[in-house]
Computed example of a mutant assay.
Amino acid sequence: MSELDEPEIAQVTLPGVLHALSDPTRLAVVAQLARAQEMSCGNLEVAVAKSTLSQHLRVLREAGVTHTRPDGNQRWLSIRRDDLDQAFPGLLDSVLGALTPSDT
């Protein structure tokens, strides 16, 4: 697998990040990643088809919310926590802190 395109932090915008976090499935993915630090795509607990999950993961990656690390035939996901905290201090903590158990 080749390296996936991810925006430089200077290209990450607040509207893009907020859009990526506005979907319940994507928000659930981010919440799981926040708890686990890093997860393989296959271990995410979401109630959508694989193709739909792939599209959600693409939106998160292209918005600059997540980092995808290819490793053999697996892809490992993590939140770009340091970058997001630098660009938008407190945003991720506020969003994750507002979640209820039914949101994840």
Rank of each mutant, 00 (worst) to 15 (best):
E3T: 15
E3V: 15
L4H: 03
D5A: 15
E6W: 08
P7E: 04
E8P: 11
I9R: 15
I9P: 08
I9T: 15
A10N: 12
A10R: 11
V12H: 14
V12F: 14
T13F: 09
T13I: 06
V17A: 08
L18V: 06
L18D: 05
H19W: 12
H19I: 13
A20P: 05
S22P: 08
D23M: 08
T25W: 00
T25P: 06
L27M: 11
L27D: 05
L27Y: 07
A28D: 07
A28L: 09
V30H: 02
A31Q: 03
Q32G: 10
L33K: 00
A34D: 05
A34G: 10
A34S: 13
R35V: 02
Q37T: 08
Q37F: 00
E38H: 10
E38F: 08
M39K: 01
S40P: 11
C41P: 01
G42I: 00
N43Q: 13
L44N: 01
E45A: 12
V46K: 02
V46Q: 01
A47G: 13
A47T: 13
A47Y: 09
A49K: 13
K50E: 01
K50I: 00
S51A: 15
T52S: 10
L53R: 02
Q55C: 10
H56N: 13
R58V: 08
R58C: 08
V59S: 06
L60V: 06
E62Y: 05
E62V: 11
G64R: 06
V65F: 03
T66D: 05
R69S: 10
R69Q: 14
P70A: 04
D71V: 13
D71K: 07
G72V: 09
Q74F: 03
Q74K: 09
Q74Y: 01
R75N: 10
W76A: 00
S78G: 04
R81L: 09
D82T: 14
D83I: 03
D83H: 06
D83F: 00
L84Q: 09
D85V: 10
Q86G: 12
Q86K: 12
F88S: 10
P89I: 02
L92Y: 12
L92E: 11
V95N: 03
V95G: 01
G97I: 11
L99Q: 01
T100H: 05
P101Y: 03
P101A: 06
S102T: 11
D103R: 04
D103T: 08
